[in-house]
Design a protein around this nucleic acid. Sequence first.
RNA 1: GCCCGUGUAGCUCAGUUGGCCAGAGCAGCCGCCUUGUAAGCGGCAGGUCGUGGGUUCGAUUCCCACCGCGGGCUCCA
Length: 672
Amino acid sequence: MADITITLPDGSERSVPAGTTVGGLAAAIGPGLAKAAVIGVVGGVERDLVWELADGDQVEIVTAASERGLYTIRHSTTHVMAQAVLELFPGATFAIGPPVEDGFYYDFELPPGPDGKPGTFVPEDLERIEARMRELMAEAQPFVRDELTNERAREVFAGHRFKLEIIDGEADDPTSATESGLVRTYENPPAAPWASPAFAGYPGFVDLCRGPHVPDTKAFLGHFKLMRVAGAYWRGDEKNPMLQRIYGTAWATKKDLDAHLERLEEAAKRDHRKLATELDLLSFPEELGGGLAVWHPKGGIVRKLMEDYSRERHQQGGYEFVYTPNIANGRLFEQSGHLGFYADGMYPPMEMDNGVYYPKPMNCPGHNLIFNARQRSYRELPLRLFELGAVYRYEKSGTLHGLMRIRGFTQDDSHIYCTPEQAHDEIRSLLGFVLSVLRAFGFTDFEANLSTRPAKAESVGTDEGWAEATENLRAALVAEGLDYEVDEGGGAFYGPKIDVKVRDAIGRSWQLSTIQYDFNMATRMGLEYVGEDGARHTPIMLHRALFGSIERFFGVLLEHYAGAFPTWLAPVQVRVLGVRDDHARYAFEVAEELALLGIRVDVVDASEKLGNRIRKAKGEKIPYVLVVGDDDVAARTVGVNPRGGDVERDVSLDEFAQRVVDEVSDQSHAAR
RNA sequence: GCCCGUGUAGCUCAGUUGGCCAGAGCAGCCGCCUUGUAAGCGGCAGGUCGUGGGUUCGAUUCCCACCGCGGGCUCCA
């Protein structure tokens, strides 16, 4: 047989016998790669290891170490899960089951129970399914690719209405594909035929799928765990039936799986709702209503420090401070467009004698009224209005989530009005300002999304306006050296935007800041300024939130620091403990001296053993515990027990005080 | 809003097949101890068992509804 020539990713060519498969090529390159190969990418298309290569193919071997390999493992694992479910629950059918970040899911519909409603999984079912999956994996059933005609596919999946919709092209499935009349499937031939066959002509499991898959149900699989069951609407539409979704996680090695589970545990430990209770920061009293929080003194001081710092920076940044009321006449929201576009997100109206009032869902209409309060000149632009504005939004009850998603919150909201000529520089400096403030709170790892114009019919403004605005945003991202992804068509109808995301201490990404153009509201609300030419012009209006929501940002910070706020933000910075009762007088003297320097300090008396008092202080994550005893009284010193550091004895009080003052000053100013 | 789960003291949790006054640790309060770097000892107090119905001789336990919370879906101009 003649040889064929294959091109590898490094550009090198290799001759192999005709009929060589992807797996065969991997073996020809080396035994290590043969073992590690999960799939191949042939001419840009992912293929199974048994795929036969053709002369001239460009081939890349994909291993489990790569993102694509891992995706394949997760995708194959979810097939095995579907097989287990369909076998264990006769009459069950299935919808889609793609790999997702960290794992996979599959959506099922179970046969109706005695009440006529579709069945549901109970948590114990997950154990049964997982056990069956491990048995199926042990059988090493091959993943067998096939292509069927539409007619044949309709016969095979006759009992599976969701699959029929996919075959007919009515529903999208990211992992299956129908094209040119042929339907691709993968079969897993079982060791013994199923008791109640679910697919015409097959002894066991077959699924619509474009693949590729691992070679068989044993290879690369097995490091997985079924995590939870949840409801999910078919095709993501709440008008459609709700299916039962099972989420799982799967990894290439046991080590990776364990590391993932540990990360989840770590995240659970950092959960801001748990820490908020433990550290007495804030609470969500049931009596107050869903999605509403009260701030306790310890949380209140941290919030105040955040807000003080924000105000200070904004003042330096050329912002002007404004205040607008919490409710407004419905006419304002008619004019701004909120009642037209955003009514679902607003609290219901209050009837008053002279009209209907709504709690404000956003601050922009109020700020626009300030702009409109008198005639504006180009000489006063850019005009930057800033407010820590409380807003209320009606979030559906099922979406509420601690501080991250609440109904009453405070935006650090700014609206900037400038001339078209100023926009480029203004956005550039705005983005720099945003990043600088975020850095002061300990975030160093940023990413951004640039969202562009949605379908024209849904959006306002001119092509030129959108193009220039988008270009200004892009230029700012480039100038700041920020990694960004373009979300094509992801902008709001009124303008393009940048969303800034940060990575926290355990690598999670949080979307915080946003910078948005608004081509809509300036026109709707008749904003105008008089230009150098004496004519009236519509200003460029920008929305900008930095923390986004003070509440949510606080929650993110709390999780980022795992409750251990840096000294400048810690509710209590220093706790003084006298060794015995008779050191109390000196302990208070120490506290007083520190307090005079603006340090937040408290004293706990000696009614408990020192060790226990230290333990409690550590539990409260206080940055510095000072222990004072006989030696310290005599020499005006302190014993310093810092959070996460070693104990230091006989430190002069003045020296310690200076250290704390310097540390606070350095930390809160580091980003400038 | 929809699906599943869950709801016992301020917090973390026990409470066998429905059966006498519902338990523990921590936290709180009161004593004792007088203490040098992550839990000294004793006592006291604290609960309409989420709320409201129902079944039952009897309900924290079983059923229904509602509310809150958790995980998802949807939503987030």
